[in-house]
Amino acid sequence: MPIVQMFNKELAPSQVQALKFGLWIGMASIIMLFGALTSAFLVRRGVGNWYEYKLPIEFFYSTVIIVISSIVLEFCFRALKRKNEKLFKQSLIASFVLGIGFIASQIIAVKNLLSQGLYIDLNVSISFLYVIAGLHALHLLGGLVTFIISILLAFTSEFAVNDMKILKFDLLRQYWHFLGVLWIYLLVFLILQ
């Protein structure tokens, strides 16, 4: 796995700190991205011709799944810090599988919408739902790719914990929690509308 090993490069703590800072900046721009969409949603709704519909029930299952995934990842992070290899690997896989579960529940939600005839071009209120949920799912897929890299690294190289590794793993942890919180924000936003 030479490509995966590229991510195993030794970095100075200051470099990892800088990466973490970069991640926060990235999160700020993601907030702007969704901030723009939700503001556009409000502005557009004010214009009228707005179709009211019920959110698919799978969105609530998604929420439960992503919250559990975050909690499991938190256990995973603690296991890493305590050098508990077994728990680390188990919870890492579990959290990843739950992430897949989130995507699956989103796909089922879309199927549900389609079966009700709520196509993307039916009304702009539904168009927004597809765009917002779809864009969030894309960001989550990015997180899943990071998961895959972490899992491959965990299972192909020796389990050796140091500060640099903890900091690097923290990048995934923070991004994942961020996406969970972002989802909850989006869901609450959609419910309130």
Binding site: S29, M32, L33, A36, I120, D121, S127, F128, V131
Partner: peptide
């Protein structure tokens, strides 16, 4: 740039949907 370009991206995204998915943003 980091605060304003994502907003443009959102706007473009909606434009892409209007162009190709038949939406009416």
């Amino acid at each position: 740039g980091l605060l304003s370009f994502p907003v443009l991206f959102s706007g473009f995204l909606l434009l892409i949907f209007d162009r190709s998915m038949g939406t009416s943003f």
